[in-house]
Design a protein around this nucleic acid. Structure first.
Length: 622
DNA sequence: CTAGGGTTAG
């Protein structure tokens, strides 16, 4: 192919004077069309330079092609960046459009050095006396937003104020808003929005998105309704963001309102909207309707499936989540890393090590990096499935670790009673420069609790606020009550609760009641149970714990009375559930549950085992 | 040749 082009270039060169310039240009354009690589392009370029009538036209002719080649094969783009620049920079009379296209190409590249290159081209334009137009500025601002180049963006912002573009061109204002939004400066976004004479749908959407991305969900939703009041009609893009906000808020009423808005305004449901709707209904608790919508979708992509897998898990329907994954496998859709994270999460919560291992093998086989989300999910899965050593190996093998990785392994080690190792890993965090957060401290405090390290636990609890500026939540107070209570320091635990700056909740009272159970404190237990029932009247855990306290103090009559009192009340049961995985299918078992298709056989076998145990002189312990 | 969209962790 190359030699063909060179060959025909040579022939053309020799016959150059036989053609007039137009036909030469046509010939070159024809060659450019079929040109596939930078090397071929360079050959044509060389020919153009050597052909004197075409010399001046050369850059203009090849430039658009160069841009399109670079953007379609971004991998070779980096290597040819110098070449790319040298042509443009040496142009004597470049048209603004050429620069615009170049900046556009650079702004859509992922690489952040390309974004800065786009800014450099923008500067070069100004130096050459070219006037950036209403296309140039949105492109270069997009490049800044891509790499969060705030400083550069601010300079362009200043340029836009000086030239008056900021006020006159809505595209400029919108891309500028977007830049500040991705940099997290929501106040700057709002200020630009407020100070602008014209606001179109994109301005509103950018504002809403800015709020939602920063986690200011209610503010984003409020902006949406404000937009509706101003008689602008939302389109698919706006609605996807508002639905995602409703989903994150778990606000079903709001979500339904948005859905109604879509029907009233005849917004058509493309795949993005469809996915957002499914996700919203799932996270807001209406899983049945979400499944119905999912089934009715005319097209589904990997995100649709991912939404189902992680959304069901979010609702605690881990088994169903894995069922969806199996269906996805059956139709032959390739999982991506988001899918795998969701699957690992469900495996972790069900304790299905086999499938978790399969995912790990899949990750290795497909050379997916076991860092970030994936690595953290693997650590968590192994830890929760009981393979703490394997969890630790994955943790150590990770190239980059963040606060989630550290927390996963610390909580995992604490759960497995390896308190010292957990605290050792925790002490590594300041050395590698990772700040622990609230969840990390749950792991640290529970490690201390399990190992009976009272003084250390108190020290860490104190450091939480004094060193790390974290405000302890009721969970942390619960851990401390547990720590003191387990160690038999019941009075100290009671005193600790009295001095809490926030209202104790079920975590805290539950921990104290647990301590009463361990240490057989019947009377205190009774008063703590009442407290627990006050803050959590709908659950049965207070009754269960208390009746255990009665039983272990041989107060059978009181225990029975409590169980009876419970029966009439239809309380939420704290589920005790176990599961096994067989040939890829997860089977769940709850206490007294007879829903399994082979339930009869299972119970029959259990009875056999029990009687065999009895025959061998073993007495069942309850 | 212009701007704004979904799913993922402890």
């Amino acid at each position: 192919m190359n030699s063909q082009i060179i060959g025909s270039c040579r022939v053309q060169y020799q016959d150059a004077y036989a053609y007039d310039m137009n036909s030469q240009e046509l010939w070159v354009l024809d060659r450019l069309k079929s040109c596939k690589t930078i090397t071929q392009l360079k050959q044509i370029h060389a020919f153009l330079i050597k052909t004197s009538p075409l010399r001046l036209r050369a850059p203009q002719l090849i430039y658009p092609k160069l841009i399109s080649l670079c953007t379609t094969s971004s991998s070779s783009f980096g290597a040819n960046l110098t070449y790319f620049r040298s042509i443009l920079t040496n142009l004597e009379n470049p048209h603004v459009i050429l620069y615009n296209n170049a900046i556009k190409a650079l702004s859509s590249a992922q690489n952040s050095s390309f974004s800065l290159e786009a800014v450099a081209l923008f500067r070069e334009m100004l130096i050459k006396g070219l006037v950036p137009d209403n296309y140039t500025v949105p492109y270069v601002l997009k490049a800044c937003a891509q790499s969060q180049a705030l400083r550069e963006g601010e300079q362009i912002h200043a340029h836009c104020i000086k030239t008056g573009m900021l006020l006159s061109i809505v595209y400029v204002k919108n891309t500028l808003m977007r830049l500040y939004a991705v940099c997290g400066f929501i106040k700057a976004v709002q200020k630009l929005f407020d100070g602008s004479p014209q606001r179109d749908l994109v301005s509103w959407t950018t504002l809403i998105q800015g709020y939602v991305k920063m986690g200011f969900l209610r503010e984003g939703v409020a902006a949406f309704f404000e937009m509706c009041d101003s008689n602008l009609r939302a389109d698919e893009m706006t609605l996807v963001i508002v639905l995602s906000a409703s989903s994150k808020l778990g606000d079903l009423e709001l979500g339904r309102k948005i859905h109604d808005y879509m029907r009233d305004n005849e917004v058509n449901s493309d795949i993005f909207v469809g996915n957002a709707l499914v996700n919203m209904y799932l996270n807001c608790g209406d899983a049945d309707f979400a499944c119905k919508l999912f089934d009715e979708m005319p097209f589904r992509n990997v995100v649709s499936w991912n939404s189902m897998i992680s959304g069901l898990a979010h609702q605690g329907k881990f088994k169903e989540s894995l069922d969806v994954f199996r269906k996805m496998q059956n139709i032959g859709l390739k999982p991506d890393d988001v899918t795998l994270v969701g699957v690992l999460n469900s495996c972790a919560n069900l304790g299905v090590l086999e499938l978790g291992k399969w995912v790990h093998a899949y990750i290795d086989k497909n050379q997916i990096k076991a860092d970030g989300y994936i690595g953290n999910a693997l650590v968590d899965m192994y830890a929760k499935c009981g393979s703490i050593d394997q969890a630790f190996r994955v943790f150590q093998g990770m190239k980059s670790r963040d606060v989630y990785s550290y927390t996963a392994i610390i909580v995992g080690l604490a759960m497995h009673g390896e308190a010292e190792k957990a605290l050792l890993i925790f002490s590594e965090m300041p050395i590698v420069g990772i700040e622990p957060d609230e969840v990390t401290f749950i792991g640290v405090l529970s490690a201390c609790s399990h190992a009976g390290l009272v003084a250390e636990g108190q020290k860490y609890f104190e450091e939480m606020s004094s060193v790390y500026n974290l405000i302890p939540q009721t969970e942390h107070y619960g851990c401390m009550v547990d720590l003191l209570g387990r160690a038999g320091l019941i009075n100290e635990a009671e005193e600790f609760i009295k001095n809490m700056p926030i209202e104790p909740d079920a975590f805290v009272w539950g921990a104290l009641l647990g301590a009463c159970r361990i240490h057989g404190k019947v009377e205190l237990g009774e008063s703590v149970m009442r407290k627990l029932l006050e803050v959590e009247p709908e659950r049965d855990s207070a009754y269960i714990l208390m009746s255990n306290i009665y039983s272990s103090s041989n107060k059978w009559r009181d225990a029975l009375k409590l169980r009876k009192a419970m029966k009439g009340k239809n309380m939420k049961k704290t589920p005790g559930c176990s599961s096994i995985e067989l040939d890829g299918v997860v089977h769940e078992f709850r206490k007294g549950d007879k829903s399994h298709s082979k339930s009869k056989e299972i119970y029959k076998l259990l009875e056999d085992i029990m009687s065999q145990l009895k025959n061998h002189g073993h007495l069942a312990q309850y």
